[in-house]
Write a protein that binds this DNA or RNA. Structure first.
Lengths: 133, 133
DNA sequence: TCTGTCAATCAGTATCACTGACGATTTTAC
DNA sequence: GTAAAATCGTCAGTGATACTGATTGACAGA
């Protein structure tokens, strides 16, 4: 299991490395693209990242001009971390294809049927604990 | 994938923790039990552990009286890290059952068929690269 | 015998997540 | 309406851990 994950992370890291990103960066970017602006704590909690680590992750993405910090008007304690136009373009036109290709590489030992099966099993494994803790 | 691995490691760690062990310790112990005495580098290479980290892993196991360092008579640069009787007893009577139970917990969302399927897919994923690099 | 390679070791370094505290803001309790 | 508790983001410090590079002893080939 751990070796499979190491392989996965390695493939993923090398896919996003050309963009100067780490895997945590990619996770945050795609999460914002999928669900819209979110607070740092929400991003951290959802993806098992420490809240203090998220500070530096967002720092880096902001420095690259990919996200911007805005206050959430409904609760000014929180940020609303959103994608900049540059960030959105990068995610949709460059990052997502690279990720799909990495996933394809990772699953390359499998037939199409097996790929679907494997990902579905993985999904259940992870989310079974969500409902029955 | 990473979340599944985190879950796996967490379950595994808590299974071996009552014996005062970490997951690396368990990996080394079972590898020796399965394949006999090995050098530190072999143990390290096989399981993706750094060679210098393996020094302290074996140090700890030796301190617990579970393994012993002997020189390999065929190549005296190498150790032949072997289980002590105490180590062998622990692995076979205590550790292995605990590991099996942990595995059972990890795979509990699955039916027996799915468990076999999942582990077989995982195995292929990891070992596909061994033959076709 | 000399040169290059490999095993184990160790000190130092780098990385990284996490703890605990803080100010600012919001929510809850009275 | 106000005081107390809770939440968000931040930062400095800590700790755990893996790795780098160098060293020593041992083997292997020319």
């Amino acid at each position: 299991m751990t070796k499979a994950n190491d392989l996965f992370v390695e493939i993923l890291e090398s896919a996003v490395e050309p963009f100067g990103l780490r895997s945590k960066d990619f996770i945050v970017l795609t999460a914002i693209d999928a669900l819209g602006p979110q607070s740092q704590q929400d991003l951290a909690r959802t993806h098992g990242i420490d809240r203090t680590t998220m500070v530096s992750v967002v720092d880096g993405l902001e420095r690259l001009g990919l996200v911007q910090r805005a206050r959430n008007p409904d609760d000014r304690r929180k940020y609303a971390i959103g994608l900049t136009p540059k960030g959105q373009t990068l995610v949709r036109h460059n990052l997502s294809p690279a990720i799909l290709e990495a996933l394809d590489t990772f699953l390359s030992p499998f037939t199409p049927d097996e790929r679907a099966l494997f990902t579905s099993l993985l999904w259940r494994l992870v989310h079974a604990r969500d409902t029955t803790p």
